[in-house]
Amino acid sequence: MAWPLARKVSAALLGILAGTVATTGFFTYSKLQSVLSALAESRYGVVVYAVKHNAEDQLALGFPLRQLRPVQDVIDRMKVNDSRIRGIEVFDASGAILFDTDRGAIGASVPPAWVRAAAAAGNHPFAITDEEGRIVGLPLVDSLGTVDGGVVLRYPGVHLDDLLGASLGGLARQAGLVLAVFAALGVAGSYRLFGGVRQRLETMDSVLGTVLAEGADPLPEDEPASFETDFAGFAVKAHETIHDLEDAMQDVERLDRLA
């Protein structure tokens, strides 16, 4: 026998439940993650803006970017203020690093993507994610309106699961428990629902057997059409037909024998 109805419907319900939990979970998690990321980005955006402001003030005095020694002090101080900052870099229009909280990197080049982002950013912050973490940056614009380079701040991407840490496990257990309870409820519900169907079908089946074996009264004519009336009509008619055919058979046998 194939799967009973209740099992099929239970399977469908559980599948839907699993799918719904998975998709809502995924969407909600990533939405919350994006809230978190946006918060982190704006947090470091504030720092980058301060560096930009400082550097542009000095650019306005006519100094070329690579001579802005005080900028090095500013970014060093920023990094001390916030231990989560991995590094702050100031680079020129060609991508060469002029100032860096990691002094060893001065003279190296930033990825071309940063230079492009800075050149295209206008006066808006840009954000980039790479394998090492997240970056928020701003272009440096001199008093002629040309982009002289950019400031970027590297920080580790913050992940919701890291922040949740230990409570994540508890949360998962709790969720699992709730889901299990409701899954069981769904299965019980569908068995109850289809138990009724099964019972009625079995009753009808046995009625059919009884009618076929013993016959029944013809149905009243004015019964409204429904599955039940069609069924009852069918049962009666089948019984009648079988009897009729058997009678006819006997008649023919009798004919055969008598002759």
Binding site: A60, L61, G62, S143, L144, T146
Partner: peptide, 12 residues
Amino acid sequence: YRYYTVGQLTAL
């Protein structure tokens, strides 16, 4: 407007 900056802009 500083003369120096004006000179730079003229050079641009």
